[in-house]
């Protein structure tokens, strides 16, 4: 598709300074309203004329949604905090370095300077059939263009596909799930709803047209990170084609607490999450249960990696994601040192 470089089609623009005013505007415009954070997911939709909202509600002036505060021994991150601010925060660096690594691996420096963490977890999928405006399931139609014998689907799902085979693009999402983060939502009627990060993201079986539990008029206001995994042993790795701009082919995020040293170390508790393989980031609870209480070594890693891909169904061009995911799970369990990459 040719890239359109003309100005975007006209829309109304509002720059409210409070959550309440923002929600009043969302309410007034209903289905025609669009929430604007950093805009780095939004502008593509608007420039390509695939989505044509009547009014943009820009959250850039809402001070209460910005910044990082300490809370109950953990952190509270405003949805409008930029990815760069997350990366540079001293407590994130000291206690939750997995979030730093994940945020730093997203997009490019300029995008991280503007893209917000709330936008990062709320962004839409990058399936190009869908982004190009093809009337697929996700767009309200009744076909998946990425899952036909002719489809180019190297980047698509290997797990939990249900009609739609798109994957979640968010790099911060798996790290937030590994940290047991809580997403604080202000619903359109003004109530506060707190959802575990794991349940914030939804797959096509629950709602094929949405990536998250957010309903029209809802705003994500803050992300709370509990003390639970502060200073744990973290592992994050994102495999992508280019080191800048590109979304994850597969990524893994884990938080682990071990008892004992080196070879004798026993996995006491663990969170293990992968992304780039399904429509939502997947917490691998069965694998977590399997490795809990086992030594942190190669044989545990092998058991974990085999269990991790159970039920996977590759498409024509993405079977490589199976060994990739297995190897990343192994690295998350036993570290990079001393382990070999297997195909």
């Amino acid at each position: 598709m040719a890239v359109i470089r003309d100005p975007m089609p006209a829309f109304e623009l509002f720059q409210p300074t409070s959550v309440a005013d923002a929600q009043a505007l969302l309410d007034r415009y209903g289905a025609g309203a669009w929430v604007l954070a950093g805009g780095l997911d939004s502008f593509d939709w608007l420039k390509d004329r695939i989505k044509r909202p009547a009014a943009l509600v820009d959250l850039g002036g809402v001070a209460e949604l910005k910044g990082i505060r300490e809370r109950d021994g953990g952190l509270e991150i405003g949805a409008m905090t930029t990815l760069t601010e997350v990366v540079h925060h001293p407590i994130v660096r000291e206690r939750y370095s997995i979030l730093l690594e994940a945020a730093e691996s997203a997009a490019s420096p300029q995008i991280r300077n503007q893209g917000t963490i709330g936008g990062n977890v709320s962004q839409d999928t990058r399936c190009w059939y869908y982004r190009a405006g093809w009337p697929c399931y996700r767009a309200g139609g009744n076909i998946c263009y990425a899952d036909t014998p002719e489809s180019i689907n190297r980047e698509h799902a290997i797990l939990q596909a249900d009609r739609c085979v798109a994957v979640s693009p968010s790099d911060t999402a798996p790290a937030l799930i590994a940290l047991d983060a809580q997403m604080v939502i202000r619903t359109s009627d003004g109530d506060e709803r707190v959802v575990p990060a794991q349940d914030y993201f939804v797959g096509p079986a629950i709602d094929i047209t949405r990536m998250t539990v957010l309903q029209p008029g809802d705003l994500l206001t803050t992300i709370r990170i509990p003390a639970t995994w502060a200073g744990a042993r973290f592992y994050f790795e994102k495999v992508r084609d280019r080191q800048v701009w590109d979304f994850a082919l597969v990524s893994v995020a884990s938080a682990m607490v071990v008892k004992g040293e080196d070879n004798g170390a026993i996995i006491e508790r663990i969170r293990l999450v992968v992304n780039g393989v399904a429509a939502r980031p997947l917490r691998l609870e069965a694998v977590e249960a399997l490795v809990q209480g086992r030594p942190r070594n190669e044989s545990t890693a092998v058991i974990a990696s085999n269990r991790a891909i159970e039920g996977a169904q590759p498409l024509r061009f993405n079977a490589y994601k199976l060994p990739l995911m297995k190897n990343l799970v192994k690295r998350a369990i036993r570290g990079v040192e001393g382990g070999t990459w297997t195909s």
Binding site: F43, D44, S108
Partner: peptide, 19 residues
């Protein structure tokens, strides 16, 4: 590119690089 994918349009806003 006009799509946040090349950097040619980089300017500083309050000293921070943006597209």
């Amino acid at each position: 590119c006009d799509r946040a994918e090349c950097g040619a349009c980089t300017v500083l806003i309050d000293d921070v690089p943006h597209y």
